[in-house]
Design a protein around this nucleic acid. Sequence first.
DNA 1: TTGACATCTGACTGAGCACTCACTATAGGA
DNA 2: TCCTATAGTGAGTGCTCAGTCAGATGTCAA
Lengths: 206, 206
Amino acid sequence: MPSHKKSSILDAATRLFASKGFTQTSIQDIARLAGSAEGTIFYHYKSKEELLVAVLDNLRADLAQCFQGHLAPGASSPGFPAVEDAIAFYFHLASIKEYYFLLLQNHHLHELARENPACREQLEAIYTIILGFFESAILKGQQDGSLHTPNPGKTALLLFTMVDGLVRLRAYNLYEPGALFADLIEACGKILNRRNPEIRKPKAAP
Amino acid sequence: MPSHKKSSILDAATRLFASKGFTQTSIQDIARLAGSAEGTIFYHYKSKEELLVAVLDNLRADLAQCFQGHLAPGASSPGFPAVEDAIAFYFHLASIKEYYFLLLQNHHLHELARENPACREQLEAIYTIILGFFESAILKGQQDGSLHTPNPGKTALLLFTMVDGLVRLRAYNLYEPGALFADLIEACGKILNRRNPEIRKPKAAP
DNA sequence: TTGACATCTGACTGAGCACTCACTATAGGA
DNA sequence: TCCTATAGTGAGTGCTCAGTCAGATGTCAA
C-alpha cells in the first residue's frame, strides 16, 4: 500500500506546480505544504523532475477515470446533444480541477517533454485522452444525426483550443467568469454544423 | 539617443524570456546573448523584473505599430474579407514574431501582473490592442455586409482564444504546422455568421 | 589638460536552491 | 529479543542566482 506521506507529497506538488509553476516551486514549499521533511521527498522520488512525471502520471489516470465515468452508458442526459454535453462537462471539470489544466499549460512542461521521454509520453497520453473525449462526442453527435462534421479529429483539436483558451482566460481573470460560456457553446455549435439551430441551455454554467 | 548595448540587452531578454521563460532565464544568459557584462544590465534596468516590464513596453509599441500598418487605408486587399484578412495577418505576425506570443503565454507573467501595477498595465494595454484589432475587423465586415455578428467584443475574444491556442499548439509541435490553418479560417467564418458561404483562400498560410 | 558625466565592466556577496547523507523510528518475522 | 527493511528526518553541501560596487573607459565642453 502507498504511504500516506507519499500521496500527500504528490498532492502538494500537483497544486504548487499548477499555481506557482514548476521552477518557482521549491522542494521546501512542497515539504511545507505536505507536512513532511525535505528528505522524505527525495526518499520517494529520485529528483524534482521525477516528481513532476509522477504528478503527470497521476493526473492522466484521474482524468481518464473522469472521462470514462462521464461516457459510461446512462451517465449522459438522454436526448441532450452529445457535444454540448461534452463541452459543458469539460468546463465543469476545468472548474473543479482547475489546477490540472493550469499545470498542462505550463511552458516549462513542454520544454521538458522535448528532452525527457517519460515526460513526453505522459503528456502525449494526456492529450490523446482529452482529444479522444471530444472526438467521441462528435462521433456520437454524427450518429444521432444532430451533427454534420467532416473531420472529427481536426474539429476536436479546434474545440480543445477554444475551451482550453477560455480556461486560461478565466485563470488570468481576463474576463468575468461564466460570461462567455453561452457564447462558447454557441460558437462550437456553429463550427460543428449543427442541423438543429436552436441550442438548448446546458444545465450548469461554471 | 538610446545606447546600442541597452537595445541589444532588451532584444536578448525578449527572445530568452519567450523561449526559456522568465524564471529559467538568468542574467548571465541575457548578458552572454547581448554581448555585454552582467553589470551593464543593472546599469540600464534596476532589476530583472523592471527589465521584463521594459520588454513588455517594447512589445506593446511594436505590436501597435504592426496592427496600425495593417489597418492603414490601402494596406488590406480591397474586396478581401476583412476578418479572414485579419486572422491571416495575425497568424503571419505570430509566425514572424513568434517570441512575442510565446512571451504573452508565460504563466509567471500573469502571476507578476497581479502584484506589479506597471506589469499589469502593460499586459492590459497589449490585450486591448489585440482584441481591438479583431473587433475592428469584425466591424468592418459588418459594414460591408459580409458578416452578421451580434456581439463583436465577445466574438473578438473567442477568435483570439482560438488563434492564440493554435499558436501554442504549433510552438509545442502538437500538430503539423499549417495543417489546421484552413480549418481554423473556416471555423472562424462559421462563428461570425458569414453571409457568403464560399471562403477564399488567404494568400499566405504560415 | 582637466573635470564632469554617462556608459560599461566583472569580481564579489549573500540568499536560496536541489540534492545528499548519516541518522532515528517503527513494525513484522525469526 | 534481535534482525532487517521500510519510512522518515533535517542539518549540511556545493552550486547558481540576482543584485552590488569600486573602478575602468569614452566623450565632450570649458
